[in-house]
Structure formats: structure tokens, C-alpha cells
């Protein structure tokens, strides 16, 4: 029973990280129809910047996270301006190729600066929490709490603020949005900034219980794509639910089947669900 709850916590942790990454990806897809493979590189760059701020500059963990979120948000905005905006109107394939190019470019730059070695980002929260007779590493609880706080914040931003509703408006009808005077390039920039910040925060939350290395974003972005296809491209609840489904499948799969197959489980589940529900769990886009 204890082991069972342990897997639930692991699933929640993984699911939280995946959901944050998938949310950014699905936002960009839902609004701009760009399959942004470089999102995985932004995740990785976020971890490296936090590692740099914390390790080399001595900034505390949460400060390093905030710094990484800002840097990656700016980087995401720059990628929109320099790479994706000039491709507006071109076939989606061009966006996709550009995104993969950007992913490889960022990985190469990071490797040139920090090398190909594995690094560890330290978190100050190394204690073990005892809760209802269960033991839980504090970092895992923090990941879950921080992810849910961010999702709630994103929800409130999108539903309650004017800027948030311009994002949803553009997702629901691009031309309608332009005709009420919503500036598409401003919405694109805000969307990229949000998605970059979410990726960075996810990476910095997860890094203390995993490793920091140049290719750390590759598997994450593939899984995030699986998640948003599962959840319905462009659907925010779908990204969260899909993230949790994959997180739980991995943690339970690793425990009850084998850790060796952990990464395959996500893809196997994907094939299974898509053959039953080809339009995903939540078809219908950004609401």
C-alpha cells in the first residue's frame, strides 16, 4: 500500500512536469499552429541557466528559477521574432523544420559553453516529509504544488484578464480577433513568452531530482507532443490531463513492469489511445 502511494506521488510529480511543458506547447500550437519542437531546447536551456545562476553566481534556488524563466521567456520571444514570424503563411512543414533546426542549434550552443557532461542542480529542499504515515521527498511535493499553482495562475490569467482573453480570442478565430483590433504579433509574443517561462520552470523544478545535460529536453518534448495529441491539439485541460496520464503510466509502469520500459510506456499508451479515440481526449482547442 505504501509503495502504491509512492507511485501516485511519483506519477503526480512526473505528470506535473510534463503538463507544464505540454501546456506551453499546446498554447503555441492552438494559437499559432506551430509544432514547436524547439520547446524541448527551451526546457533544457532553462535548466542550464538556473544551474549557472545557482552554481556560478550563488543565486538561491527560487531566484535562479525566476531568472531562468525570464531568460527563456525572452529567448522564446526572440525565436518567434527571428524564426517563426518570417515563416508566417508558409506551409507548416517549414515551421517544423525551423523548430527542429532551432532545437539542434540551442543544444549545440549549450554544449559549446557548458560541455556535454551531466550536471546536478541543487535544491535547498532536500528534507523528507512525513505525511499520514507516508514519506515524501520535499522536492517532489514542491514540484506538484508549484505546478498546480502555475496552472491556476495561467487559468486565471487567460479567463480573467483582457490580455488573456486576446490569446483565447486569437485561438478561437484569428480573423475575428484581427477585426476587433487585437494585434496578432503582440499575442504571439506574449504566448511565446508564457510558454518559454513554463518550460523553464518545469525544467528547474525537475532538475534537482534528475540531471542537467544538453539532450535532456529531447525525450521530454517527444512526450509533450504525445500528450498534446492525446489531450487534443490546443486544449489546455487536455494538456494537463494528458500529462498526468503519461506521468502515472510511467511511474506505475516502471514499478509494476520494469524501469527499462519506462520511456516506451508513454508511446505505447499513445498508440493505444489514438486507436480508440483518434481526435484525442479533449478535442476542440483553446477555450
Amino acid at each position: 500500500m505504501v509503495m502504491f502511494f509512492q507511485q501516485i506521488l511519483n506519477g503526480l510529480t512526473l505528470g506535473s512536469v510534463y503538463s507544464l511543458v505540454a501546456l506551453g506547447l499546446t498554447l503555441i500550437y492552438g494559437i499559432l499552429h506551430i509544432p514547436n519542437f524547439s520547446h524541448g531546447a527551451l526546457y533544457m536551456v532553462g535548466a542550464y541557466f538556473a544551474y549557472f545562476f545557482a552554481g556560478s553566481l550563488g543565486v538561491p534556488y527560487w531566484g535562479a528559477m525566476a531568472g531562468a524563466a525570464v531568460v527563456v521567456a525572452l529567448l522564446a520571444v526572440a525565436s518567434e521574432r527571428l524564426v517563426f514570424r518570417p515563416l508566417r503563411g508558409a506551409p507548416v512543414l517549414h515551421d517544423m523544420i525551423a523548430a527542429i533546426g532551432l532545437l539542434l542549434f540551442l543544444e549545440a550552443v549549450v554544449q559549446a559553453i557548458w560541455g556535454a557532461d551531466f550536471h546536478r542542480l541543487q535544491s535547498p529542499h532536500t528534507q523528507i516529509v512525513h505525511l499520514f504515515g507516508l514519506v515524501a521527498p520535499a522536492q517532489r511535493l514542491l514540484i506538484v504544488a508549484a505546478a498546480f499553482a502555475l496552472m491556476l495562475g495561467l487559468h486565471l490569467f487567460l479567463q480573467r484578464t483582457v490580455m488573456g482573453s486576446t490569446i483565447i480570442a486569437m485561438a478561437q478565430d484569428r480573423e475575428g480577433a484581427a477585426l476587433v483590433g487585437i494585434d496578432a504579433s503582440r499575442v504571439s509574443m506574449v504566448t511565446f513568452a508564457i510558454s518559454g517561462a513554463l518550460a523553464a520552470v518545469a525544467a528547474v523544478l525537475f532538475a534537482p531530482i534528475s540531471l542537467v545535460y544538453p539532450a535532456m529536453g529531447d525525450l521530454v518534448i517527444l512526450k509533450a507532443f504525445v500528450i498534446i495529441i492525446l489531450g487534443g491539439m490546443g486544449s489546455l485541460p487536455g494538456a494537463i490531463l494528458g500529462g498526468m496520464v503519461i506521468g502515472f503510466a510511467e511511474s506505475f509502469g516502471a514499478f509494476y513492469i520494469s524501469t527499462n520500459y519506462k520511456d516506451i510506456i508513454a508511446f505505447a499508451l499513445f498508440v493505444l489511445i489514438m486507436s480508440v479515440r483518434p481526435s484525442g481526449l479533449f478535442p476542440g482547442g483553446v477555450r
Binding site: 482573453s165 483565447i168 480570442a169 478561437q172 475575428g176 476542440g284
Partner: peptide, 10 residues
């Protein structure tokens, strides 16, 4: 516009 172009989910 023609076709109304509303934000259907809002």
C-alpha cells in the same frame, strides 16, 4: 465580417 467570425467558446 461574413460568417460572423465570433469567438464561439466565449
Amino acid at each position: 465580417p461574413e460568417g460572423r467570425k465570433l469567438f464561439p467558446g466565449m
